[in-house]
């Protein structure tokens, strides 16, 4: 397992570097937006992966609720996976938003346009920040179950958020991201490399966080056992 992780991490880092090279040196400069369009090569993959990880979080939480009375070990694993994926969601979506803001200023002339995509992504970020806050605020027995319940609520909420914001904002002319114009195939391939890089990088980060959490769980267990004098 450890070698697999090392290999995966190495592949991710190399791919990220290659993706940067593609984005900055290979892909042509976009005609209307200029160099700032190159933000997309990381901004879009970050957001795409950040919209998948919430479902990892929700599925892991459902698994936790299902397993907690049956198989303690598997339940703890599911719980660690849920936290890891929520954290990576916040990291990726947060970075994606920052990229969007920095792109919006030169391209649209304003930092924040409240268009459909930006707004729903912000709400997605808020949902998972609130999940992490709940984990922070409550500890002890029961907190895992409660966090899992919130995660299910959040997972159910995500599609509703996206739908409702789209309805809300379609009444306004929203700037279109790429338009219907033809996209240069070199741009496409640069984008695809970056997407692949972030997919693997996301797995690596979740894995690393998961492994850390598992160790922390094991440590807490040992300390608890020592406290009651079993060990």
């Amino acid at each position: 397992m450890k070698t697999l992780f090392t290999i995966l991490a190495a592949v991710a880092v190399v791919l990220l570097g290659f993706g940067l090279y593609q984005a900055f040196l290979v892909a042509p400069t976009e005609a209307t937006m200029g160099p700032v369009q190159r933000i997309f090569y990381w901004h879009v993959p970050l957001n795409i992966i950040g919209e998948i990880t919430p479902y990892v979080n929700m599925l892991a939480s459902i698994a936790y609720i299902f397993l907690r009375g049956r198989n303690q070990l598997a339940a703890r694993r599911a719980d660690a996976l849920a936290v890891a994926s929520a954290e990576v969601t916040v990291l990726f979506v947060g970075l994606g938003l920052i990229g969007g803001i920095l792109w919006g200023r030169p391209a649209w002339g304003i930092w924040w346009a409240w268009d459909a995509r930006t707004t729903s992504t912000l709400l997605l970020l808020l949902l998972y920040v609130s999940y992490l806050l709940l984990r922070r605020f409550s500890d002890g027995p029961g907190s895992r179950t409660i966090a899992a319940v919130l995660s299910i609520f959040a997972g159910v909420d995500v599609p509703i958020v996206f739908m409702s914001i789209r309805w809300w904002r379609t009444q306004h002319p929203a700037p279109v991201l790429t338009g219907d114009g033809e996209i240069d195939p070199v741009m496409k391939s640069a984008f695809a490399w970056n997407l692949l890089a972030f997919f693997i990088w996301g797995i690596v980060l979740i894995w690393a966080r998961y492994a850390t959490l598992r160790r922390e769980q094991a440590l807490a267990e040992r300390e608890a056992l020592q406290l009651i004098g079993v060990a």
Partner: peptide, 28 residues
Amino acid sequence: FSALSLRSRNRDLLLPLILFPISIPALL
């Protein structure tokens, strides 16, 4: 959610923090 936050420390602070993000579509 207020039942959910019963067991947490600073419960009064937590309730709006988890209630508002979830309720935004309904509020909208």
